[in-house]
Amino acid sequence: MMRPMSKIVRSMGGVLYPLIAVFGGYLILHGHLTPGGGFQGGAVAASAVALVVVAYGGTLYKKGVLSTVESFGLLLFLGAGLIGMSAAFFANTLANAGGLFGDAVSFGVTDAGLNTGGTVPLMNIAVGCEVIGGLGLIILALSKAAFTREVD
């Protein structure tokens, strides 16, 4: 596994890592209101993972955890699609129905609230998990390959 880098890199990584991760989470949760969404937020959060892997070496992350996060994300996504099966796959039956994310929205230019969107925020969260898990796994796998250089 990769060796940790110099103290400067580690300190800066420690400062930047939470900021990037929080920004990624913001993009995921606000995906139905502002630019961003599951994929963008997940990619930003995964670049925080990349920062940690570069600065501290890959031992902080477990492959099993990331792959579980990934599978969970996809199952949540398909589940969010299957909720709408009474009408059609992916139908947004939760919108305007009350409950979490179910606040009613009026059509047109409005002050959109965070609790609107029905299944859309759920899907954003699912895609976010999926992308963090998947890209994190890619980074871990390649960083592991990068620092074992023997040739058969």
Binding site: T68, S71, L75, L78, M85, A88, F89
Partner: peptide, 23 residues
């Protein structure tokens, strides 16, 4: 009613259940 989409999502569901069950 839902046969067209079920053809596609059943293997997709299986594909991502497989690693979970493989543990």
């Amino acid at each position: 009613d839902h046969a067209p989409i079920l053809v596609v999502i059943l293997p997709l569901l299986g594909a991502f259940l497989t690693p979970l069950i493989g543990k």
